[in-house]
Write a protein that binds this DNA or RNA. Structure first.
Length: 504
RNA sequence: GCCCCCAUCGUCUAGAGGCCUAGGACGCCACCCUUUCAAGGUGGAGAUCACCGGUUCGAAUCCGGUUGGGGGUACCA
Protein backbone atom coordinates (compact mmCIF):
# COMPACT_ATOMS: atom_id res chain seq x y z
CA UNK A 1 0.00 0.00 0.00
CA UNK A 2 1.49 3.25 -1.02
CA UNK A 3 1.35 6.08 1.44
CA UNK A 4 -0.83 9.06 0.60
CA UNK A 5 -1.01 12.11 2.86
CA UNK A 6 -2.54 15.50 2.38
CA UNK A 7 -2.47 19.06 3.57
CA UNK A 8 -5.95 20.52 3.51
CA UNK A 9 -5.88 24.24 4.22
CA UNK A 10 -8.90 26.47 4.32
CA UNK A 11 -8.55 29.67 2.33
CA UNK A 12 -10.05 31.73 5.14
CA UNK A 13 -6.87 33.61 5.95
CA UNK A 14 -3.26 33.98 4.86
CA UNK A 15 -0.98 30.97 5.24
CA UNK A 16 -0.68 30.32 8.96
CA UNK A 17 2.60 29.22 10.47
CA UNK A 18 0.77 26.25 11.98
CA UNK A 19 -0.59 25.18 8.62
CA UNK A 20 2.90 25.46 7.19
CA UNK A 21 4.21 23.22 9.97
CA UNK A 22 1.48 20.63 9.43
CA UNK A 23 2.18 20.75 5.71
CA UNK A 24 5.87 20.26 6.39
CA UNK A 25 5.36 17.20 8.57
CA UNK A 26 3.08 15.68 5.96
CA UNK A 27 5.57 16.51 3.25
CA UNK A 28 8.51 15.08 5.19
CA UNK A 29 6.61 11.92 6.02
CA UNK A 30 5.52 11.42 2.42
CA UNK A 31 8.96 12.04 0.95
CA UNK A 32 10.64 9.90 3.56
CA UNK A 33 8.61 6.85 2.65
CA UNK A 34 8.26 7.61 -1.03
CA UNK A 35 4.57 8.41 -0.69
CA UNK A 36 2.32 10.98 -2.31
CA UNK A 37 1.73 14.47 -0.93
CA UNK A 38 -1.69 15.84 -1.84
CA UNK A 39 -2.89 19.41 -1.57
CA UNK A 40 -6.63 19.94 -1.17
CA UNK A 41 -8.42 23.21 -0.59
CA UNK A 42 -11.20 23.09 1.96
CA UNK A 43 -13.25 26.04 0.84
CA UNK A 44 -16.72 25.00 1.94
CA UNK A 45 -17.00 27.95 4.30
CA UNK A 46 -18.14 30.22 1.50
CA UNK A 47 -18.62 33.17 3.82
CA UNK A 48 -14.98 33.26 4.86
CA UNK A 49 -13.13 31.75 1.91
CA UNK A 50 -11.34 34.10 -0.45
CA UNK A 51 -9.39 33.57 -3.61
CA UNK A 52 -6.67 35.89 -2.41
CA UNK A 53 -6.06 33.73 0.61
CA UNK A 54 -5.96 30.65 -1.54
CA UNK A 55 -3.21 32.19 -3.64
CA UNK A 56 -1.31 33.28 -0.55
CA UNK A 57 -1.40 29.75 0.86
CA UNK A 58 -0.33 28.11 -2.37
CA UNK A 59 2.47 30.58 -2.93
CA UNK A 60 3.66 30.24 0.63
CA UNK A 61 3.89 26.46 0.50
CA UNK A 62 5.61 26.67 -2.85
CA UNK A 63 8.04 29.25 -1.52
CA UNK A 64 8.97 27.00 1.37
CA UNK A 65 9.79 24.29 -1.12
CA UNK A 66 6.98 21.85 -0.44
CA UNK A 67 5.87 20.81 -3.89
CA UNK A 68 2.69 18.81 -3.89
CA UNK A 69 2.31 15.78 -6.11
CA UNK A 70 -1.41 16.27 -6.52
CA UNK A 71 -3.38 19.45 -6.24
CA UNK A 72 -5.77 21.92 -7.85
CA UNK A 73 -5.26 23.74 -11.09
CA UNK A 74 -3.66 27.09 -10.47
CA UNK A 75 -2.83 30.09 -12.62
CA UNK A 76 -3.87 28.32 -15.77
CA UNK A 77 -1.90 25.19 -14.96
CA UNK A 78 -4.06 22.08 -14.95
CA UNK A 79 -4.83 20.11 -11.79
CA UNK A 80 -2.30 17.43 -10.99
CA UNK A 81 -3.35 13.94 -9.98
CA UNK A 82 -6.13 11.46 -10.70
CA UNK A 83 -8.34 12.31 -7.76
CA UNK A 84 -9.42 15.82 -8.74
CA UNK A 85 -10.92 18.23 -8.50
CA UNK A 86 -8.94 19.31 -5.46
CA UNK A 87 -11.16 22.15 -4.32
CA UNK A 88 -14.08 21.04 -2.20
CA UNK A 89 -16.55 23.46 -3.71
CA UNK A 90 -15.89 21.71 -7.01
CA UNK A 91 -16.64 18.35 -5.43
CA UNK A 92 -20.15 19.08 -4.22
CA UNK A 93 -21.76 16.21 -6.18
CA UNK A 94 -19.52 13.77 -4.33
CA UNK A 95 -20.75 14.92 -0.94
CA UNK A 96 -24.30 14.94 -2.17
CA UNK A 97 -23.96 11.37 -3.34
CA UNK A 98 -22.38 10.28 -0.05
CA UNK A 99 -25.06 12.06 1.99
CA UNK A 100 -27.82 10.47 -0.10
CA UNK A 101 -26.31 7.09 0.56
CA UNK A 102 -26.25 7.66 4.31
CA UNK A 103 -29.83 8.92 4.12
CA UNK A 104 -30.94 5.88 2.14
CA UNK A 105 -29.33 3.56 4.67
CA UNK A 106 -30.87 5.56 7.52
CA UNK A 107 -27.42 6.38 8.84
CA UNK A 108 -28.37 10.01 8.52
CA UNK A 109 -31.60 11.98 8.55
CA UNK A 110 -33.09 15.36 7.77
CA UNK A 111 -33.32 17.73 10.70
CA UNK A 112 -35.66 20.71 10.67
CA UNK A 113 -34.78 22.24 14.01
CA UNK A 114 -34.45 25.99 13.93
CA UNK A 115 -31.45 27.86 15.29
CA UNK A 116 -33.77 29.15 18.00
CA UNK A 117 -34.80 25.68 19.09
CA UNK A 118 -31.20 24.54 19.17
CA UNK A 119 -30.15 27.55 21.17
CA UNK A 120 -32.93 26.90 23.66
CA UNK A 121 -31.87 23.25 23.98
CA UNK A 122 -28.35 24.31 24.66
CA UNK A 123 -29.40 26.86 27.25
CA UNK A 124 -31.51 24.26 29.06
CA UNK A 125 -28.66 21.76 29.02
CA UNK A 126 -26.31 24.33 30.40
CA UNK A 127 -28.76 25.14 33.19
CA UNK A 128 -28.94 21.42 34.06
CA UNK A 129 -25.17 21.09 33.92
CA UNK A 130 -25.42 18.66 31.06
CA UNK A 131 -22.93 18.59 28.23
CA UNK A 132 -24.38 20.31 25.16
CA UNK A 133 -25.79 17.84 22.70
CA UNK A 134 -28.43 17.49 20.02
CA UNK A 135 -31.59 16.10 21.63
CA UNK A 136 -32.69 14.10 18.60
CA UNK A 137 -35.95 15.89 18.01
CA UNK A 138 -35.88 15.05 14.31
CA UNK A 139 -34.17 11.68 14.60
CA UNK A 140 -37.33 9.69 13.93
CA UNK A 141 -39.72 11.90 11.99
CA UNK A 142 -42.53 10.25 10.09
CA UNK A 143 -42.98 11.14 6.41
CA UNK A 144 -46.04 13.17 7.46
CA UNK A 145 -44.09 15.16 10.03
CA UNK A 146 -41.40 15.85 7.49
CA UNK A 147 -44.02 16.93 5.01
CA UNK A 148 -45.48 19.43 7.44
CA UNK A 149 -42.12 21.00 8.07
CA UNK A 150 -41.33 21.13 4.38
CA UNK A 151 -44.67 22.81 3.84
CA UNK A 152 -43.67 25.45 6.34
CA UNK A 153 -40.76 26.17 4.05
CA UNK A 154 -38.12 24.93 6.46
CA UNK A 155 -34.83 23.97 4.87
CA UNK A 156 -33.37 20.94 6.64
CA UNK A 157 -29.81 20.08 7.49
CA UNK A 158 -28.64 16.50 7.36
CA UNK A 159 -27.53 14.87 10.57
CA UNK A 160 -25.39 11.78 10.94
CA UNK A 161 -26.44 9.19 13.49
CA UNK A 162 -23.55 8.94 15.90
CA UNK A 163 -24.83 5.89 17.76
CA UNK A 164 -23.54 4.40 20.96
CA UNK A 165 -20.25 2.92 22.00
CA UNK A 166 -16.62 3.75 22.38
CA UNK A 167 -14.48 4.67 19.42
CA UNK A 168 -10.89 3.62 19.78
CA UNK A 169 -7.90 4.30 17.58
CA UNK A 170 -4.17 4.05 17.67
CA UNK A 171 -2.69 7.48 17.15
CA UNK A 172 0.78 7.34 15.62
CA UNK A 173 2.14 9.95 18.00
CA UNK A 174 -0.08 9.51 21.03
CA UNK A 175 -0.84 5.83 21.14
CA UNK A 176 -4.23 4.44 22.03
CA UNK A 177 -7.08 6.93 22.32
CA UNK A 178 -10.61 5.94 23.31
CA UNK A 179 -13.60 8.26 23.28
CA UNK A 180 -17.21 7.48 24.12
CA UNK A 181 -19.68 8.65 21.50
CA UNK A 182 -21.66 10.22 24.34
CA UNK A 183 -19.02 12.95 24.36
CA UNK A 184 -19.64 13.81 20.72
CA UNK A 185 -22.58 16.11 21.24
CA UNK A 186 -25.25 14.02 19.64
CA UNK A 187 -25.97 13.46 15.97
CA UNK A 188 -23.84 15.85 14.03
CA UNK A 189 -24.75 18.06 11.15
CA UNK A 190 -22.95 16.96 8.00
CA UNK A 191 -24.78 19.03 5.41
CA UNK A 192 -25.96 22.62 5.85
CA UNK A 193 -29.48 23.70 4.98
CA UNK A 194 -28.05 25.26 1.82
CA UNK A 195 -26.76 21.87 0.76
CA UNK A 196 -23.06 22.49 1.32
CA UNK A 197 -21.14 19.96 3.38
CA UNK A 198 -19.59 20.69 6.76
CA UNK A 199 -15.93 20.11 7.43
CA UNK A 200 -16.30 16.86 9.38
CA UNK A 201 -18.17 15.37 6.46
CA UNK A 202 -16.27 16.68 3.47
CA UNK A 203 -12.95 15.84 5.06
CA UNK A 204 -13.96 12.21 5.44
CA UNK A 205 -15.60 11.86 2.06
CA UNK A 206 -12.49 13.31 0.45
CA UNK A 207 -9.93 11.43 2.47
CA UNK A 208 -11.79 8.27 1.53
CA UNK A 209 -12.19 9.25 -2.12
CA UNK A 210 -8.58 10.34 -2.39
CA UNK A 211 -7.35 7.15 -0.75
CA UNK A 212 -5.52 9.01 2.00
CA UNK A 213 -3.65 6.51 4.16
CA UNK A 214 -2.33 8.78 6.92
CA UNK A 215 -4.02 11.83 8.37
CA UNK A 216 -1.35 14.00 9.97
CA UNK A 217 -2.81 17.13 11.52
CA UNK A 218 -2.86 19.32 14.61
CA UNK A 219 -3.89 18.08 18.02
CA UNK A 220 -6.91 20.36 17.93
CA UNK A 221 -8.56 17.68 15.79
CA UNK A 222 -7.93 14.84 18.21
CA UNK A 223 -11.30 15.02 19.94
CA UNK A 224 -13.06 15.18 16.60
CA UNK A 225 -11.39 12.08 15.27
CA UNK A 226 -14.09 9.68 16.52
CA UNK A 227 -16.63 11.56 14.40
CA UNK A 228 -14.43 11.00 11.40
CA UNK A 229 -13.87 7.34 12.16
CA UNK A 230 -17.61 6.78 12.53
CA UNK A 231 -18.16 8.48 9.20
CA UNK A 232 -15.48 6.39 7.47
CA UNK A 233 -17.21 3.28 8.75
CA UNK A 234 -20.67 4.43 7.77
CA UNK A 235 -19.39 5.16 4.29
CA UNK A 236 -17.87 1.72 4.11
CA UNK A 237 -14.43 3.24 3.62
CA UNK A 238 -11.09 2.05 4.92
CA UNK A 239 -10.14 4.33 7.80
CA UNK A 240 -6.70 5.95 7.59
CA UNK A 241 -4.08 6.01 10.32
CA UNK A 242 -4.06 9.17 12.40
CA UNK A 243 -1.16 11.20 13.76
CA UNK A 244 -1.92 14.26 15.83
CA UNK A 245 0.83 16.81 16.03
CA UNK A 246 1.48 18.94 19.09
CA UNK A 247 0.11 22.45 18.82
CA UNK A 248 2.28 25.52 18.27
CA UNK A 249 1.72 27.79 21.24
CA UNK A 250 1.70 31.48 22.09
CA UNK A 251 4.10 32.57 24.83
CA UNK A 252 1.26 31.96 27.35
CA UNK A 253 0.98 28.35 26.14
CA UNK A 254 -2.40 28.76 24.49
CA UNK A 255 -2.91 27.69 20.88
CA UNK A 256 -0.95 30.05 18.64
CA UNK A 257 -3.22 32.82 17.47
CA UNK A 258 -3.15 35.91 15.34
CA UNK A 259 -4.13 37.93 18.37
CA UNK A 260 -1.09 37.01 20.44
CA UNK A 261 1.54 36.03 17.90
CA UNK A 262 2.64 36.79 14.40
CA UNK A 263 1.03 33.87 12.61
CA UNK A 264 1.20 34.82 8.93
CA UNK A 265 4.05 33.15 7.08
CA UNK A 266 4.15 36.19 4.82
CA UNK A 267 5.02 38.48 7.71
CA UNK A 268 8.12 36.43 8.41
CA UNK A 269 9.03 36.42 4.77
CA UNK A 270 8.71 40.18 4.62
CA UNK A 271 10.93 40.59 7.65
CA UNK A 272 13.63 38.73 5.82
CA UNK A 273 13.48 35.25 7.24
CA UNK A 274 14.82 32.84 4.67
CA UNK A 275 12.85 29.76 3.76
CA UNK A 276 15.62 27.41 4.85
CA UNK A 277 15.50 28.80 8.38
CA UNK A 278 11.72 28.71 8.58
CA UNK A 279 11.55 25.12 7.41
CA UNK A 280 14.38 24.15 9.73
CA UNK A 281 12.74 25.88 12.68
CA UNK A 282 9.27 24.52 12.00
CA UNK A 283 10.66 21.01 11.80
CA UNK A 284 12.23 21.45 15.22
CA UNK A 285 8.91 22.51 16.71
CA UNK A 286 7.68 19.12 17.77
CA UNK A 287 10.26 16.93 16.13
CA UNK A 288 13.86 16.25 16.96
CA UNK A 289 16.56 14.29 15.21
CA UNK A 290 17.74 12.58 18.36
CA UNK A 291 21.27 13.79 17.59
CA UNK A 292 22.89 16.96 18.83
CA UNK A 293 22.75 18.75 15.51
CA UNK A 294 20.11 21.33 14.79
CA UNK A 295 20.81 22.76 11.35
CA UNK A 296 19.04 20.76 8.70
CA UNK A 297 18.25 21.55 5.08
CA UNK A 298 14.96 20.24 3.69
CA UNK A 299 16.44 17.20 1.97
CA UNK A 300 18.16 16.14 5.16
CA UNK A 301 14.94 16.55 7.10
CA UNK A 302 13.34 14.24 4.58
CA UNK A 303 15.87 11.51 5.17
CA UNK A 304 15.75 11.86 8.95
CA UNK A 305 12.08 12.47 9.65
CA UNK A 306 10.07 9.88 11.55
CA UNK A 307 6.66 10.22 13.12
CA UNK A 308 7.93 8.17 16.04
CA UNK A 309 10.20 11.07 16.96
CA UNK A 310 7.39 13.60 17.12
CA UNK A 311 6.76 15.15 20.53
CA UNK A 312 3.32 15.01 22.09
CA UNK A 313 3.45 18.16 24.22
CA UNK A 314 2.76 21.57 22.68
CA UNK A 315 5.65 23.84 21.70
CA UNK A 316 5.94 27.57 22.32
CA UNK A 317 6.95 29.51 19.23
CA UNK A 318 10.32 31.08 20.04
CA UNK A 319 11.20 33.89 17.71
CA UNK A 320 14.71 34.26 19.15
CA UNK A 321 15.60 30.76 18.13
CA UNK A 322 14.14 31.32 14.68
CA UNK A 323 16.32 34.42 14.35
CA UNK A 324 19.39 32.52 15.35
CA UNK A 325 18.67 29.84 12.78
CA UNK A 326 18.03 32.56 10.22
CA UNK A 327 21.46 34.03 10.87
CA UNK A 328 22.97 30.59 10.54
CA UNK A 329 21.30 30.08 7.20
CA UNK A 330 22.16 33.53 5.90
CA UNK A 331 25.80 32.78 6.67
CA UNK A 332 25.56 29.57 4.70
CA UNK A 333 24.03 30.95 1.52
CA UNK A 334 26.16 31.24 -1.60
CA UNK A 335 27.17 34.80 -2.54
CA UNK A 336 25.00 35.06 -5.64
CA UNK A 337 22.04 33.64 -3.82
CA UNK A 338 22.39 35.97 -0.89
CA UNK A 339 22.77 39.03 -3.14
CA UNK A 340 19.65 38.12 -5.02
CA UNK A 341 17.68 37.81 -1.78
CA UNK A 342 19.16 40.96 -0.32
CA UNK A 343 18.55 43.29 -3.25
CA UNK A 344 14.79 43.70 -2.82
CA UNK A 345 15.19 44.53 0.84
CA UNK A 346 17.87 47.11 0.18
CA UNK A 347 15.93 48.64 -2.70
CA UNK A 348 12.80 48.87 -0.59
CA UNK A 349 14.72 50.55 2.16
CA UNK A 350 16.27 53.08 -0.18
CA UNK A 351 12.99 53.69 -1.95
CA UNK A 352 11.45 54.48 1.40
CA UNK A 353 14.23 56.97 2.15
CA UNK A 354 13.66 58.53 -1.26
CA UNK A 355 9.97 58.87 -0.50
CA UNK A 356 10.92 60.78 2.59
CA UNK A 357 12.69 63.29 0.40
CA UNK A 358 16.24 62.10 0.72
CA UNK A 359 18.61 61.99 -2.22
CA UNK A 360 19.47 58.35 -2.79
CA UNK A 361 21.35 56.32 -5.31
CA UNK A 362 20.29 52.76 -6.15
CA UNK A 363 23.26 50.41 -6.33
CA UNK A 364 23.59 47.51 -8.76
CA UNK A 365 24.23 43.90 -7.85
CA UNK A 366 27.98 44.21 -8.34
CA UNK A 367 28.20 47.00 -5.86
CA UNK A 368 26.22 45.06 -3.29
CA UNK A 369 28.34 41.99 -3.98
CA UNK A 370 31.39 43.93 -2.87
CA UNK A 371 29.68 44.69 0.43
CA UNK A 372 28.80 41.09 1.18
CA UNK A 373 31.80 40.32 3.38
CA UNK A 374 31.00 43.38 5.44
CA UNK A 375 27.38 42.49 6.13
CA UNK A 376 27.05 38.73 5.99
CA UNK A 377 27.69 38.10 9.69
CA UNK A 378 25.57 41.03 10.70
CA UNK A 379 22.21 39.98 9.34
CA UNK A 380 19.78 38.28 11.70
CA UNK A 381 17.18 38.97 9.01
CA UNK A 382 17.54 40.13 5.42
CA UNK A 383 15.73 43.37 6.16
CA UNK A 384 18.63 44.38 8.41
CA UNK A 385 20.63 45.20 5.28
CA UNK A 386 19.26 48.74 4.93
CA UNK A 387 20.43 50.22 8.22
CA UNK A 388 23.80 48.50 7.75
CA UNK A 389 24.75 50.10 4.46
CA UNK A 390 22.27 52.76 3.48
CA UNK A 391 24.65 55.59 4.41
CA UNK A 392 26.61 54.57 1.34
CA UNK A 393 23.71 55.43 -0.91
CA UNK A 394 22.27 58.47 0.76
CA UNK A 395 23.70 61.82 -0.28
CA UNK A 396 23.21 63.78 2.90
CA UNK A 397 23.53 61.69 6.02
CA UNK A 398 22.27 62.98 9.31
CA UNK A 399 24.95 63.19 11.99
CA UNK A 400 24.15 63.80 15.62
CA UNK A 401 26.85 66.12 17.04
CA UNK A 402 26.42 64.55 20.44
CA UNK A 403 27.29 61.10 19.06
CA UNK A 404 30.22 62.52 17.18
CA UNK A 405 32.17 63.13 20.38
CA UNK A 406 33.52 59.87 21.86
CA UNK A 407 32.75 59.29 25.50
CA UNK A 408 36.21 60.10 26.76
CA UNK A 409 36.63 63.13 24.54
CA UNK A 410 35.44 66.71 24.41
CA UNK A 411 34.32 68.57 21.28
CA UNK A 412 37.66 70.33 20.88
CA UNK A 413 39.63 67.11 20.85
CA UNK A 414 37.13 65.61 18.46
CA UNK A 415 37.37 68.53 16.10
CA UNK A 416 41.12 68.35 16.18
CA UNK A 417 41.09 64.61 15.65
CA UNK A 418 38.72 64.81 12.70
CA UNK A 419 40.83 67.55 11.19
CA UNK A 420 43.96 65.44 11.53
CA UNK A 421 42.17 62.38 10.28
CA UNK A 422 40.97 64.27 7.26
CA UNK A 423 44.56 65.30 6.49
CA UNK A 424 45.86 61.77 6.90
CA UNK A 425 43.04 60.32 4.84
CA UNK A 426 43.66 62.84 2.13
CA UNK A 427 47.37 62.08 2.10
CA UNK A 428 46.85 58.36 2.07
CA UNK A 429 44.05 58.61 -0.39
CA UNK A 430 46.11 60.54 -2.85
CA UNK A 431 48.40 57.53 -3.10
CA UNK A 432 45.93 54.66 -2.78
CA UNK A 433 42.66 54.58 -0.91
CA UNK A 434 42.79 51.15 0.62
CA UNK A 435 41.76 49.65 3.92
CA UNK A 436 45.16 48.46 5.07
CA UNK A 437 46.87 51.74 4.33
CA UNK A 438 44.12 53.80 5.90
CA UNK A 439 44.24 51.70 9.02
CA UNK A 440 48.03 51.91 9.27
CA UNK A 441 48.20 55.64 8.84
CA UNK A 442 45.26 56.39 11.13
CA UNK A 443 46.66 54.13 13.80
CA UNK A 444 49.94 55.93 13.49
CA UNK A 445 48.11 59.22 13.87
CA UNK A 446 46.40 58.07 17.05
CA UNK A 447 49.61 56.83 18.50
CA UNK A 448 51.52 60.01 17.71
CA UNK A 449 48.86 62.10 19.42
CA UNK A 450 48.38 59.78 22.37
CA UNK A 451 44.77 59.07 21.42
CA UNK A 452 43.15 55.71 21.86
CA UNK A 453 42.71 54.29 18.39
CA UNK A 454 39.17 53.24 19.26
CA UNK A 455 38.16 56.79 20.09
CA UNK A 456 39.60 58.17 16.89
CA UNK A 457 37.91 55.46 14.87
CA UNK A 458 34.59 56.05 16.56
CA UNK A 459 34.70 59.75 15.77
CA UNK A 460 35.45 58.96 12.15
CA UNK A 461 32.80 56.27 12.05
CA UNK A 462 30.07 58.60 13.22
CA UNK A 463 31.32 61.36 10.95
CA UNK A 464 31.09 59.29 7.78
CA UNK A 465 28.11 57.04 8.57
CA UNK A 466 26.07 58.88 11.15
CA UNK A 467 25.98 55.66 13.16
CA UNK A 468 27.84 54.17 16.10
CA UNK A 469 27.44 50.58 14.93
CA UNK A 470 28.65 49.84 11.43
CA UNK A 471 30.56 47.28 9.43
CA UNK A 472 34.36 47.48 9.86
CA UNK A 473 35.48 51.08 9.47
CA UNK A 474 38.23 50.94 6.88
CA UNK A 475 36.32 48.76 4.49
CA UNK A 476 33.48 51.15 4.97
CA UNK A 477 35.66 54.12 4.03
CA UNK A 478 36.84 52.33 0.92
CA UNK A 479 33.26 51.55 -0.02
CA UNK A 480 32.38 55.18 0.50
CA UNK A 481 35.28 56.31 -1.65
CA UNK A 482 37.94 58.95 -1.23
CA UNK A 483 35.90 61.99 -2.10
CA UNK A 484 32.86 61.30 -0.01
CA UNK A 485 35.02 60.33 2.94
CA UNK A 486 36.72 63.72 2.80
CA UNK A 487 33.41 65.51 2.28
CA UNK A 488 31.81 63.85 5.25
CA UNK A 489 34.79 64.48 7.49
CA UNK A 490 34.56 68.13 6.54
CA UNK A 491 30.83 68.21 7.14
CA UNK A 492 31.33 66.70 10.57
CA UNK A 493 33.96 69.30 11.39
CA UNK A 494 31.46 71.98 10.44
CA UNK A 495 29.09 70.48 12.91
CA UNK A 496 31.59 70.94 15.71
CA UNK A 497 32.69 74.44 14.71
CA UNK A 498 31.29 77.09 12.38
CA UNK A 499 33.01 77.10 9.01
CA UNK A 500 34.52 80.50 9.66
CA UNK A 501 36.40 79.40 12.73
CA UNK A 502 37.27 75.98 11.41
CA UNK A 503 40.98 75.27 11.59
CA UNK A 504 42.33 74.82 8.12
C1' G B 1 -19.66 21.68 32.89
C1' C B 2 -18.43 17.23 30.02
C1' C B 3 -14.76 14.59 26.95
C1' C B 4 -9.78 14.06 25.26
C1' C B 5 -4.56 15.19 25.32
C1' C B 6 -0.17 16.81 27.81
C1' A B 7 3.64 17.59 31.92
C1' U B 8 12.52 17.29 31.77
C1' C B 9 16.47 24.20 32.58
C1' G B 10 12.79 30.81 30.86
C1' U B 11 12.15 28.42 25.54
C1' C B 12 12.92 24.12 21.90
C1' U B 13 14.49 19.42 23.24
C1' A B 14 17.86 14.45 24.39
C1' G B 15 16.35 10.57 27.54
C1' A B 16 12.44 4.32 25.69
C1' G B 17 14.66 0.94 34.24
C1' G B 18 21.00 1.13 35.94
C1' C B 19 25.51 4.76 30.89
C1' C B 20 21.85 10.81 34.58
C1' U B 21 26.25 14.03 40.15
C1' A B 22 19.96 14.69 33.69
C1' G B 23 23.02 15.97 27.75
C1' G B 24 22.46 19.65 23.56
C1' A B 25 20.50 24.23 21.34
C1' C B 26 18.28 29.32 21.83
C1' G B 27 18.31 33.18 25.28
C1' C B 28 21.12 35.23 29.61
C1' C B 29 26.03 36.35 32.21
C1' A B 30 31.51 36.46 32.14
C1' C B 31 36.02 36.14 29.66
C1' C B 32 38.88 35.81 24.98
C1' C B 33 39.22 37.91 20.03
C1' U B 34 38.34 43.06 18.58
C1' U B 35 38.13 50.07 15.89
C1' U B 36 32.05 49.86 16.85
C1' C B 37 28.32 46.24 15.95
C1' A B 38 28.20 41.42 14.80
C1' A B 39 30.28 36.65 14.08
C1' G B 40 33.47 33.14 16.43
C1' G B 41 35.90 30.73 20.80
C1' U B 42 35.94 29.38 26.08
C1' G B 43 33.47 29.13 30.60
C1' G B 44 29.16 29.93 33.87
C1' A B 45 24.31 30.43 36.02
C1' G B 46 19.89 27.84 34.94
C1' A B 47 15.69 21.46 35.82
C1' U B 48 14.56 18.86 43.96
C1' C B 49 12.83 15.53 35.81
C1' A B 50 4.83 19.15 38.43
C1' C B 51 3.30 16.59 43.11
C1' C B 52 1.97 12.10 45.99
C1' G B 53 1.89 6.98 46.23
C1' G B 54 3.12 2.23 44.10
C1' U B 55 6.10 -1.62 41.17
C1' U B 56 11.49 -2.76 41.29
C1' C B 57 17.73 -4.42 44.15
C1' G B 58 17.32 0.24 41.21
C1' A B 59 12.55 5.14 38.08
C1' A B 60 13.01 11.29 34.65
C1' U B 61 11.88 6.58 32.39
C1' C B 62 6.57 1.53 34.25
C1' C B 63 1.51 1.86 37.03
C1' G B 64 -2.30 4.68 39.89
C1' G B 65 -3.94 9.18 41.82
C1' U B 66 -3.58 14.53 42.50
C1' U B 67 -2.54 19.22 40.64
C1' G B 68 -1.62 22.31 36.69
C1' G B 69 -1.87 23.49 31.56
C1' G B 70 -3.94 22.86 26.77
C1' G B 71 -7.50 21.25 23.12
C1' G B 72 -12.42 19.85 21.77
C1' U B 73 -17.46 20.36 22.57
C1' A B 74 -21.00 25.22 15.81
C1' C B 75 -25.55 24.98 9.88
C1' C B 76 -16.09 27.37 11.44
C1' A B 77 -12.08 24.74 9.60
Amino acid sequence: MTVRVRIAPSPTGPLHIGTARTALFNYLFARHVGGTFVLRLEDTDAARSELGYERDILEGLHWLGMEWDEGPEVAGLPARGPYGPYRQMERLPLYKEAADRLLAEDKAYYCYCTPEELAADRAAQEANHEPPHYVGRCAHLTPEERGEREAEGRKPVIRFRVGEGVVEFDDLVRGNVAIDTKALGGDLVIVRSDGTPLYHFSVVVDDAAMAITHVIRGEDHLSNTPKHILLFRALGAQEPKFAHLPLILNADRTKMSKRKSQTALDAYKEEGFVKEAIVNYLALLGWSSGTEEDIFPLDELVTRFELARVQSAGAVFDRERLEWLNGQWIRRLADDDLIERLMPFLMDDLAERARQGEQVRFPGQDEVAALLPLVRERLPVLSAIGPLVDFLFIEEIAVDPAQLVPKRWDPETTLEALTEARRVAADTGSVSFEADELEASLRALAESRGWKAGDLFMAIRVAVTGRTATPPLFDTLVALGYERTIERLDAARDLLAPATSRPA
